[in-house]
Nucleic acid binder design. Structure first.
Lengths: 213, 213
DNA sequence: CTGATATGACTCACGAGTAAGTTACCACAG
DNA sequence: CTGTGGTAACTTACTCGTGAGTCATATCAG
């Protein structure tokens, strides 16, 4: 009676690797749904069913935890992009295949999209490093496709290419975001929508790469 | 000696309307350069050369001050868009003219762009109302242009239109943002760049609407 | 003397990060 | 098969800085 009841300290004995994964899962969802700045470490601890100091024990800081989430989420997305890129499709069909893969990857865990694109997290230290690594891996894919288009049109200005690439990446993000904002639409439906939209702008598109998977 | 020296309280006697404008100007710059969340009211007071309580006297809260900034900035931008829209240009040329007007408007005060597009400000209360008003005024212009393009292509699906509109607005934002990220490029140069980029995607464009002003 | 303009010095809530202690489990000596 | 000590997992209850918002007061024009 003299000492307070320390309800269940140490009784769970979950292995560190397992616990870390549980925490990262809960944190990805919380950060992704509310943004970095608006999410407190206490919120995440509660969602993960553990206490705050355990997070600091394992991840060092709020930034450290976010970097771990970023590593997980960005790894998932880049792996998917690299997978579709390896399929050998080219031109606009490749853009469609990449979007299709993104919709399918995001469907069971849509929150990681906002996690990767969150602007409320400072681009410094571990977070900045993780983001830079991610962007470096992504950069080439979009860049090559846009360069191909520009060369076909006879434009080899480097800054034109840079601006066009920015416009393309932004369009890609807009389409994904639009889809996330319209739940109930399946990845298949959204991919077909993208095919229609691209056809409106660019004319007929070869969609044979989509039928197989 | 007994009472502390209250250096210069009330000695300036600047009229409220004037002071409010000074504060809004300083706040627009501070919010636009650092974002809503990362800017403290004390920072703004210092930049404006006055003290914190005066801001609360005139604007009630940090949100109130931000809403006033938004009213000023979004008003400037929508006025410019409505001006170019009234010139009667249509199709892709209208998109170019609108971008051109945006570059010229933003050149002397580039920070208001980020102010209007800041995601760290909550979309509630006065801020949400101001943003909604702004978006409502903007919506029609982009929407009509996109609808025209879609009809020409024989696509009248409402959701396709919605997604295409989102893609267009995103591209517009990306081009403006790219320009802001590449200082030293004049509005004229950037407009010509946009003409080249649009030509790459859509083919030849009528630029006669640009030569006059 | 009244009201508008203005400020120094506070309060207070919130959230990141920490100190110190608690419990369970396991390896190993006797 | 029993004590016993080391360690990993875990918690409660704090500190402490920061920034939004407030109060009481000061100055001056009309």
């Amino acid at each position: 009676m003299a000492t307070s009841t320390r309800s269940n300290a140490g009784t769970k004995g979950v292995a560190r690797a397992v616990r870390e994964q549980q925490i990262v899962d809960a944190a990805c969802r919380a950060f992704g749904e509310s943004g970095f700045a608006a999410t407190s470490v206490a919120d995440i601890a509660e969602a993960a069913g553990i206490s705050k100091p355990l997070i600091y024990n394992y991840f060092g800081s709020k930034e450290g935890l976010y970097a771990a989430c970023l590593h997980h989420a960005a790894g998932t997305l880049t792996a998917e992009i690299e997978r579709t890129a390896a399929s050998g499709t080219v031109g606009l069909a490749r853009a469609i295949v990449t979007l299709d893969g993104m919709f399918r990857t995001l469907e069971p865990q849509p929150w990681i999209w906002r996690l990767v694109n969150d602007s409320t997290a400072a681009r410094e230290g571990a977070i900045g490093a993780e983001l830079a690594k991610y962007e470096q891996r992504i950069f080439t894919f979009g860049h090559d496709g846009v360069a191909e288009l520009m060369q076909l049109a006879g434009n080899d200005d480097a800054r034109d290419l840079s601006a066009m690439h920015a416009a393309w990446e932004s369009t890609f993000r807009a389409l994904v975001t639009w889809w996330l904002d319209h739940p109930g639409e399946t990845p298949e439906q959204m991919t077909q929508r993208c095919v229609r939209l691209f056809s409106t702008v660019f004319g007929q598109i070869d969609t044979s790469a989509l039928t197989a998977p």
